[in-house]
């Protein structure tokens, strides 16, 4: 299979802006799926609302485009009903952590085997550039014209403390690393979180003097360091990338099957 075999090519060119990182995430995701040798019919993709959510329309999997913030709740129903399917849940930062924040915490707490890919562009892109929970203090959006006084979540710390058993971060500059991380996340049994720093030149970049897509990728290159590198020690102000958490914890659908066996006296 080539990456293009997983695409619904008739909908291309896609609807994302020039230089939008989300297409790069799609690109890496498909390479991960290809590497894992998954059949298109084994994969369900459930998305919510926003630029990121449109990814589900472009892949030739079982795809469900739902409502804002609730993708993980729909995905939980699907996974509980059909545990044999690989369920991928791409979300934006607003989708996952503002309107969908509660579902995110509880999916992590249950450690249900879903792969949450959070395309963090630090802005509400589709609605025109309002600030999000990851925009950051002092940054600008159409609803933060004087600079945001809201502080950001640290998605890695949040996911870890909520109980996700796989937590990683990468960027759309580090595309080989990114595809490798997504591959690991899908293969992991349990709730996996991949934060992908994904540039929005149109709505974040423009308002925050972050430059073009190329310049935003240069920033990802310069301002991030591998988790276990020397640079991570010497430059604590830089953002760390890599796999932060990868541990075994009882997975929810398996624990449930175990409970059914005990309820029916089969165990």
């Amino acid at each position: 299979m080539s990456v293009r075999d997983y695409l619904r090519e008739r909908f291309f060119p896609h609807m994302w802006c020039p230089g939008c990182g989300h297409g790069t995430v799609l690109n890496a995701l498909l390479r991960a799926v290809e590497k894992l040798g998954l059949d298109k019919s084994e994969i369900v993709m459930v998305s919510g609302i926003g630029c990121s959510a449109r990814i589900s329309g472009y892949v030739d999997f079982h795809t469900m485009h739902t409502i804002h913030g609730r993708a993980l709740a729909f995905a939980t129903g699907i996974k509980m009903s059909r545990p044999e399917l690989s369920v991928l849940v791409p979300m934006g930062d607003g989708d996952a952590l503002a309107i969908g924040g509660n579902h995110f915490l509880h999916a992590a707490r249950r450690n249900i085997d879903l792969t949450a890919i959070i395309m963090n562009n630090r802005i509400y892109g589709m609605t025109g550039g309002q600030f999000s929970p990851l925009t950051g203090y002092g940054c600008f959006g159409t609803t933060a014209p004087y600079g945001s006084v809201d502080h950001s979540f640290d998605l890695v710390e949040l996911s870890t403390s909520a109980g996700a058993s796989f937590v990683a971060r990468s960027t759309t500059y580090h595309v080989i690393e990114l595809a490798g991380i997504i591959e690991k996340a899908i293969a992991h049994r349990g709730f996996s979180v991949v934060e992908v720093m994904s540039q929005c030149p149109t709505n974040f970049g423009r308002r925050n003097q972050a430059g073009s897509a190329v310049e935003m990728l240069e920033t990802y290159r310069k301002q991030t360091v591998p988790l276990d590198s020397e640079a991570a020690q010497t430059s604590p102000e830089k953002i760390r990338r890599g796999v932060f958490v990868e541990k075994k914890r009882p997975e929810y659908t398996e624990a449930y099957e175990e409970m059914i066996r005990s309820a029916t006296g089969e165990s």
Binding site: I67, R70, G77, N102, H106
Partner: peptide, 23 residues
């Protein structure tokens, strides 16, 4: 669970209806 079915207590009513729609 005795019938091999699934019962989920979700984090709120929104999640509850979304989960059943998915299932």
């Amino acid at each position: 669970p005795q019938n091999g079915g699934k019962f989920l207590q979700m984090e709120d009513e929104i999640a509850s209806i979304c989960a059943i729609i998915g299932a």
